[in-house]
Nucleic acid binder design. Sequence first.
DNA 1: TACATTTGTTAACACCGTTAACTATTGTGC
DNA 2: GCACAATAGTTAACGGTGTTAACAAATGTA
Lengths: 201, 201
Amino acid sequence: MGIAERKIRQKEEFKASILEAAWLQVLADGWQSLSIRKIADAIEYSVPVIYTHFENKEAILLEFTKEGFQKLADQLQGVKDQHSDPSVQLEAIANAYWDFAFEHKEYYQLMFGLGIPACEMVNQIAEMKVMTMIMISTIKEAIEGSENREADYFLKYHTYFSILHGIVSIQMIQKEGKPAEEKRMILQDAISGFIKSLIIK
Amino acid sequence: MGIAERKIRQKEEFKASILEAAWLQVLADGWQSLSIRKIADAIEYSVPVIYTHFENKEAILLEFTKEGFQKLADQLQGVKDQHSDPSVQLEAIANAYWDFAFEHKEYYQLMFGLGIPACEMVNQIAEMKVMTMIMISTIKEAIEGSENREADYFLKYHTYFSILHGIVSIQMIQKEGKPAEEKRMILQDAISGFIKSLIIK
DNA sequence: TACATTTGTTAACACCGTTAACTATTGTGC
DNA sequence: GCACAATAGTTAACGGTGTTAACAAATGTA
């Protein structure tokens, strides 16, 4: 009575082949270029068959998002297990997180909804430099009036800016939830930590 | 001979009316819902007239991106001027940055290419919780073995995660540029600062 | 063999950005 | 005032997107 099981197996294989074709497209031209029609073309079936295996395009992307979080969690657990001191673990996890993001760029962008039009333009926006200069000059002044005068102000600027953007964009993704009061504390915590490490040796 | 000037002025007004219609659409349904056709509909002209004022859709979005950075820089400069101590300034700038992002969500998302499909789904992804748990448990352990045992581990987790994501996504937007060596230093700097403020009172 | 179910197809709908080809309107030189 | 050139604005199309209704072909069952 293996014929029902064979059918299920074939269905799974079909689903897998859809995901494989989709992933090849994502790797080739980024996930914004992914289209149902291209997938159908790649697997040499008509378009609607895809909808018998996935509710819609988003469901396909969701699959990759889950896969991404699984892979990421695996890698983080892996490096955590290599150390015993929690502080060292936190450092190792941070590095592994960074590695994952850049070794699996497509996954990461999908997981956090990154990289649309601005991606290409943000580099050539002169207007951004004003903001940059305000931040850099303030950091420079802070360093000069501190006991840590040999600090690299450009490095510190990047850190400062990255912390700000990280906090904002994470909170933007997690739509609502916590009250604003609580949210602001995260900012407060991160920035006070940054400033301390900036001005104290 | 004011007729040439009137023409220029009218052209400017037309351009402005396009941007205004576009912005209303963005405010109403987010910038992913913006389409040339909807703009044309709103200003009651045919589609191609828009292309006589803007090269393409991206140029319209670019206009808003510039506007956004200008507004942001203004606000940051404004709060910086209200203080004299650089450390206080850095804190005020951080708060103003946060305020800008959430008071002008659409601008911010445009400026940093945020919020595509994942935005809606990232909340309901069970797979993410594994990663979350790894980070939280490590932070908890670090706190318990530190001299700062009353630290809020959940707050610290958010800070940690936000810093990681911020560094990664900023570096992903600024495609290439610095060598990997230098990039990793930003991570190193931010994380070592975080860990210090985590375990030291 | 006759029927029902599954499987896959074609063709359409309603959108999208972009552009070529055309018309109506305006301004200019005679 | 009139013919001509320049401008402004139009329609209609091209090629693309996600999604689905209607249909045909293959398969399994009675």
